[in-house]
């Protein structure tokens, strides 16, 4: 038996609105909205990498910055709340410059090849040319990156651009951590922490360019607090965290999103009733996600919902259905 006594006040939505101007257009949005929301109202898209509707904004990536009249620096659209009579410019010279540079800085230091198409779209749109910073230094820095000392660094090999290249961490059967693809958006840490799972298996460790996502003392996941809910994978924007099922298929070059269907159903386990989105390729489940906008668990699952579907497939194998995908 558990007793939870809630002491906090209900969040009552106010009816107040705020008027502002975005790219010369007048916008009225509810008080407390973000600039990004105001942009949406007038059909202006905002590029984002570290933003997720279910997580507290950290606005670390800075690709969403916009120009706000009266502000010395640009402001993050994903987190900055609207104020009366704000004047916002989303496509000024300064905005384009910062977005382009942020994308170049990321693309020159991180492997974005598994990032969704929209990220490549941003790079194209802002004419990002990451090669301007020199050829990537992809020498194997794995050991170095897990055990750096804050306040010290070894200078980049002259003529090269430092990267976060390192071999993927494969230490369990469920998912892979390939931090050479990590843009340090903090989303996995938030999902593992107070925003969803409250397991706190991972945190940002180290500092500066050497900051990285880590368990305590870089322990392998099976030795950590990880409960394999996969909620970190669900929010990872660049494929740094990836299901082993997907990773293996990508390695075998059998992963083909064009041939995949997505079907929403309900988890077969406990009574919470989480929605499972089954990604199916060739009549086999290849991964499971959950819609962020469903109010039962807002995209979060547990290990059983996320990974406990294989029995359906094992049964298919028993009855002699041909193995058509996967290497495992």
């Amino acid at each position: 038996m558990t007793v939870a006594a809630t002491t906090h006040r209900l969040h009552l939505k106010t009816n107040r609105t705020v008027d502002l101007t975005v790219d010369g257009q007048h916008v009225r949005v509810p008080e407390g909205s973000t600039i990004m929301k105001a942009c949406q109202e007038v059909g202006i898209g905002t590029p984002t990498l570290c933003y997720e509707q279910t997580l507290t904004p950290v606005n670390a990536c800075r690709v969403c910055v916009v120009e706000m009249e009266g502000s010395r620096a640009l402001v993050p659209a994903c987190a900055r709340k609207v104020e009366p009579d704000m004047v916002i410019w989303t496509d000024s010279e300064r905005v384009r410059h910062s977005r382009k540079l942020v994308l170049e800085l990321l693309a020159s230091s991180v492997d974005l090849s598994y990032a969704p198409d929209e990220v490549q779209g941003y790079l194209d749109h802002y004419d990002a040319r990451p090669e301007r910073f020199g050829p990537p230094d992809t020498s194997d820095g794995a050991v170095h990156r897990d055990h750096t000392q804050a306040g010290h660094h070894i200078p980049t090999t002259n003529g090269y651009a430092a990267t976060v290249a390192q071999p993927p961490k494969i230490d369990n059967e469920l998912y892979i951590r390939d931090y050479s693809r990590c843009i340090l958006c903090y989303k996995c840490v938030e999902a593992c922490g107070v925003d969803a799972q409250n397991t706190f298996a991972i945190a940002v460790a180290g500092r500066g360019f050497d900051a990285h996502i880590s368990t305590e003392f870089a322990a392998p996941l099976p030795d950590s607090a990880c409960v394999y809910c996969g909620n970190c994978i669900a929010v990872c924007p660049t494929g740094a965290l990836i299901f082993k099922s997907e990773y293996d298929m990508r390695q075998a070059e059998t992963w083909d999103e064009e041939r995949q269907t997505e079907t929403d159903t309900i988890c077969p386990y406990c009574g919470v009733g989480c929605t499972l989105r089954l990604h199916v390729q060739d009549n086999r489940i290849v991964k499971v996600t959950s819609p962020m906008d469903h109010d039962v668990t807002n995209g979060n699952l547990c290990i059983k919902g996320r990974f406990g579907w294989q029995f359906v497939q094992n049964r298919a194998r028993d009855t002699g259905v041909e193995e058509s995908v996967g290497t495992s």
């Binding site: 059967e173 099976p222 386990y269």
Partner: peptide, 13 residues
């Protein structure tokens, strides 16, 4: 889960 009929089908660390 319960008698493991379903959950024995996947590898859990």
């Amino acid at each position: 889960f319960n008698t493991g009929v379903q959950t024995s089908g996947y590898t859990s660390p």
